[in-house]
């Protein structure tokens, strides 16, 4: 199942995106996260576009995957995470 968002998800998402693209701006990544969570998983939003334009390491599907995987860490599907 999906999970609601906690502070850990936000910080992990920023950390993971920065891990892939060190030049990413934290506020931009947060805004992109808001767009993805709001339903725009095709990265057509202003901030998702900006994050991806400055990061050739990942594409839109991978950005969504990172968010999905991190969210699942906090949804209680796995013991002790």
């Amino acid at each position: 199942m999906t999970s609601n968002i906690s502070a850990g998800v936000v910080s992990d998402f920023i950390s993971e995106v920065k891990n892939q693209c060190s030049s990413s701006n934290s506020l931009l990544v947060k805004k992109a996260m808001l767009e993805l969570l709001g339903g725009d998983n095709s990265c057509e939003g202003t901030f998702s576009k900006k994050v991806l334009s400055k990061c050739n390491e990942i594409n839109c599907e991978q950005l969504n995957e990172i968010l999905t995987t991190i969210k699942s860490k906090y949804d209680g599907s796995v013991i002790g995470r």
Partner: peptide, 14 residues
């Protein structure tokens, strides 16, 4: 795993 892979979801169990 790997139930989440064949259903294109995030991991669902330990």
């Amino acid at each position: 795993p790997p139930e989440h892979m064949r259903s294109s979801r995030s991991r669902q169990g330990t």
